[in-house]
């Protein structure tokens, strides 16, 4: 009988944290639109873990290190190569990983439905996602998962504290910051200032190779992955021409007044 089967234990006693991580074009690479306008080039391009997801992983691992959680499980939904992203998460301190095979870059609605199935199976006390994937820039998956599960959501989190079966989340909003508290289980999406993710050390990268990584098929979970949005075309935005370098402040003011007429 596993620990979780014991009726005496509450969610807060043995909290597991699930962290969804996405494999995306590395943030240092300038994306190139494919010549046929069907999307952005990803073949032969350096891929990495979505930067917000590194922050989510870091937060989950810290919560476990502080004793607020017992296990951290990373999950990625995508192509086979997403296992590299999961290995990175394992090297950062995640305990085990799940790869759900599907096409490349599934939509947030489909991802949220897969995650709901995994949540039902794994019963985590918290799911910490990135606030946004830097490829599709959707900023939607965490909110959608929270909606499907009927759980509370602490989005754009810059601070997270777990205590007494609740989680207190400081959130970044347009005019400043807001605090909300949520009953557990709950969903959190990580903003950039939540923490500074650690680098995986070489020994940890070696150790990560031996940690468990389970592979599932999206179809086996009974989730319809068909996209709802059809890409009609992908185009480069109108590029800006570099203007002129000026020699003095006086010249700048003259240009702003008489040429650009903005002041």
């Amino acid at each position: 009988m596993g620990l979780l089967d014991s009726p005496a234990l509450q969610v807060k006693d043995v909290m597991k944290i699930l962290v969804p991580v996405k494999r995306v074009v590395d943030y240092n690479i300038k994306p190139r639109v494919k010549a046929d306008g069907s999307g952005v080039e990803t073949t032969g391009v350096k891929m990495s873990m979505n930067p917000f997801d590194e922050i989510a992983v870091e937060e989950a691992v810290r919560l476990r290190e502080k004793g607020a959680a017992t296990e951290v499980v990373a999950v990625s939904i995508g192509v086979q190569q997403a296992q590299d992203t999961l290995r990175t998460a394992l090297a950062m301190g995640v305990d085990r990983a799940i790869l759900v095979l599907s096409g490349e870059s599934p939509e947030p609605l489909a991802v949220a439905k897969v995650l709901r199935k995994l949540v039902e199976k794994e019963e985590p006390g918290l799911v910490i996602l990135g606030k946004q994937a830097i490829d599709d820039d959707m900023n939607a998956t965490g909110q959608m998962l929270a909606g499907l599960l009927g759980w509370g959501q602490g989005t754009f989190a810059s601070k997270v504290e777990v205590a007494d079966g609740r989680v207190l989340v400081s959130r970044e909003i347009d005019g400043g910051a807001e605090d909300v508290s949520l009953s557990l289980p709950a969903i959190i999406t990580a903003d950039l200032r939540l923490n500074e993710p650690r680098y995986a050390s070489l020994p940890n990268i070696m150790k990560a190779k031996k940690k468990p990584l389970e592979t599932l098929q999206a179809a086996d979970l009974g989730v319809d992955m068909a996209p709802r949005l059809t890409i009609v075309s992908v185009a480069e935005p109108a590029s800006r021409q570099a203007g002129e370098k000026l020699g003095s402040v006086a010249e700048l003011v003259e240009k702003l007044r008489n040429e650009a007429k903005v002041i």
Binding site: E107, P108, L109, A112, D137, M138, N139, A140, T141, Q143, M144, L145, A146, G147, L148, Q153, T155, F156, R171, E172, I173, D174, P227, R228, L229
Partner: peptide, 22 residues
């Protein structure tokens, strides 16, 4: 903005709709 992005995807999930942000 922060408010719309917080609320609308959740509402979309309740409606089984894929939102279109930005």
């Amino acid at each position: 903005g922060a408010a719309g992005k917080n609320v609308l995807p959740r509402a979309a999930a309740l409606l089984d709709v894929q939102p279109i942000p930005d």
